[in-house]
Design a protein around this nucleic acid. Structure first.
Lengths: 232, 232
DNA sequence: CGCCTGGTTGAGCTGAATCAAGGGGTGTGG
DNA sequence: CCACACCCCTTGATTCAGCTCAACCAGGCG
């Protein structure tokens, strides 16, 4: 069975691709109240590439928003493997689902600026304004749905399909040139593939005309249906 | 590479295996307030084996607790594949994380009795009693953590390890004879394996003396360290 | 009794991991 | 300014775990 090869990619109600993604791209319009709370109470902090932001098991005392850069949320297995659950990008929030301890580790992929607030303030604001509580709940619910999509992806997609799924999610709907801040190893640890397989999948997709590669970090999605992107 | 590369802390807090599992085995002691709300307001309903309880995309209007039997929570891909996220067992709750629509389908594995309450009542009770709100949040947080563990399992474990992980989780800590209500296909769809591989893994584990099989539905975990189970 | 569903087992195939070698860009030291 | 080193990426060869296909078996039921 495995997969009947459709170009379409499987699953989920409205395709596998980005369904919610919380207050991602446009926090100002998507989650006004949440962003407002950050505007008023947050403290800003900067991290160098590779630096640890928060660590699995430590008390979960703050909530975060990415101002710029990319964060990876991951865990490490006993034998040194790493699973990256999510890349958090500019505008995205993280750390809202955790209860008493962090159940993941967050690290800076490139140079990252974050703003954060103590969860106690959040509790207070959420109790005062029902909209904020709803916003948070929706955010957590989206995180769950995203994780479920990733799980389905790991179960049913093969290497090139996984990469295509990832690249599509990174690019969103637009067909602009996208820059990847993370390494092949990072992508592999996200998609459940070895770095070599990721590299091979990049080459295959390029050869198949599904993506356009500029060096190893910049790419553009190409429409599968001859329907071009620029030339009339 | 791949492994090694990390001098820092290993792995999951207490290994991969069961960490939270929400208000599972002992709802009375584990989540008194949550169970209380069910005691007071719930409606009980019965489902035959294979019957659909709730369907992906429908409005999420109720919250559920399993009184008896086993429920599978899953999604279906376009090409007919099924991913089972979770088997919900007696005493467990489900349906708390979803926002406006169900983002999964729930079906009865065997004969199932459920009790459920409208989410509006829950909202009201949670607003009135902070303990209930906390209970729900912890529950959702646990669901997220469980999903993350499953994801890691899918990424790194091989067939027999996956099955062992599953059987251990089903059995809990005790070494009693456990009965499996679900088919090999169900287990495969949960672990990301074909039913044949699941069957083979059962045989292998039995041959390795890690489990004891009675027919195809009953089993007992055996301690790996000669430390026997019954005989003094 | 035969059918049907679910489980087991075997044979062969294949996709991705692993092992291994080589390439390009950037930073550093001679 | 060039040389070397290091990191990341690419590509090739080989191996192997699990999927697929297929046959067979056991129990339940009409």
């Amino acid at each position: 069975m495995r997969l009947a090869r459709r170009d379409r990619l499987p699953a989920f109600p409205q395709s596998l691709h980005h369904a919610g993604h919380a207050g991602a791209e446009a926090p100002a319009s998507r989650s006004p109240s949440l962003a407002e709370v950050f505007d008023r109470f947050s403290k800003t902090q900067k991290y160098e590439s590779g630096q640890t932001i928060l660590i699995h098991g430590a008390p979960a005392e703050r909530r975060y928003q990415v101002v710029s850069g990319t964060v990876r949320c991951c865990t490490f297995t006993e034998d040194g493997h790493r699973q990256i659950f999510r890349f958090v990008r500019t505008g995205d929030f993280f750390g809202f689902a955790d209860f008493e301890e962090w159940h993941f580790t967050a690290e800076a992929v490139d140079e990252v600026v974050l703003r954060s607030i103590p969860y106690t303030i959040f509790e207070r604001e959420a109790a005062a304004d029902q909209r904020i509580a709803r916003e948070v709940r929706r955010h957590v619910s989206d995180a769950l749905a995203t994780l479920e999509r990733q799980l389905v992806m790991l179960s049913f997609l093969r290497a090139e399909e996984r990469l295509l799924w990832f690249l599509t999610e990174q690019a969103g709907t637009c067909e602009d040139l996208v820059q990847l801040p993370m390494t092949r190893q990072d992508i592999g640890d996200h998609l459940g593939l070895s770095l070599e397989t990721v590299s091979r999948a990049f080459s295959t997709l390029r050869r198949q005309g599904k993506i356009e590669l500029h060096g190893s970090v910049r790419y553009r999605m190409l429409e599968p249906e001859g329907r071009a992107l620029d030339a009339a």
